[in-house]
Amino acid sequence: MQFSITAILFGLVAVSSAAIADVENVRNTPRNVLENRQAANGACCIPEQSLKQDACTVNGAAGKCVPGGPAACNGALNCVANDQLVCDNNVQERSGNLCRFQAANGKIQDGAQQINSLAQAKVN
């Protein structure tokens, strides 16, 4: 059986484009856990359950789970009150619009790094 180089290349492209990057560590989490997730309540979102832009509650205020914020969450997303977020309604991320924590120095926290504008944020 012979395959043309074109057929092999198309096959490789199809396989590589089907690969999924698990950037929030939910790949090995059972489906029922993801579907029946509870909203985070506190400074940190629920490790390996909460996704970016999920609704949460911090100090009684409505907020969102975002990468980076005022609390030390040991790699988990931070629950940040809506009045401390800067958002771009034109950019979708996960279940909502792109939002990040705005620090007191005016910088925007995007995970471990500080950026100057949401255009520099890592969106996924």
Rank of each mutant, 00 (worst) to 15 (best):
M1I: 11
M1E: 13
I5G: 09
I8Y: 04
L9I: 14
F10E: 07
V13R: 10
V13P: 09
V13G: 08
S16A: 13
S16F: 07
S17T: 14
A18K: 09
A18D: 10
V23I: 12
E24A: 04
E24R: 02
E24P: 05
N25T: 05
V26F: 01
R27H: 08
R27I: 01
N28F: 07
T29L: 01
T29I: 12
T29D: 00
V33R: 11
V33C: 07
L34D: 06
E35A: 13
A39N: 11
G42A: 09
G42L: 09
I46R: 00
P47A: 03
E48H: 10
L51P: 02
Q53V: 03
A55Q: 10
A55F: 07
T57V: 14
N59L: 10
A62M: 09
G63P: 04
K64D: 02
C65F: 04
C65E: 02
P67E: 02
P70M: 03
P70Y: 06
P70L: 03
A71R: 05
A72Y: 05
C73Y: 00
C73P: 01
N74V: 08
G75A: 06
A76G: 06
C79W: 01
C79L: 04
D83K: 14
D83Q: 11
D83H: 14
Q84V: 02
Q84R: 10
L85D: 04
C87W: 12
D88Q: 05
N90R: 15
N90T: 15
V91G: 09
E93Y: 00
E93P: 05
S95D: 13
N97V: 06
N97F: 03
C99P: 11
C99W: 01
F101Y: 15
F101T: 02
Q102D: 06
A103Y: 11
A103E: 10
A103P: 08
A104K: 15
A104Y: 10
I108C: 10
G111D: 07
A112F: 11
Q113T: 15
Q114A: 03
Q114K: 10
I115V: 08
A119C: 04
A121V: 12
A121P: 10
K122Q: 12
V123H: 11
V123I: 15
N124P: 06
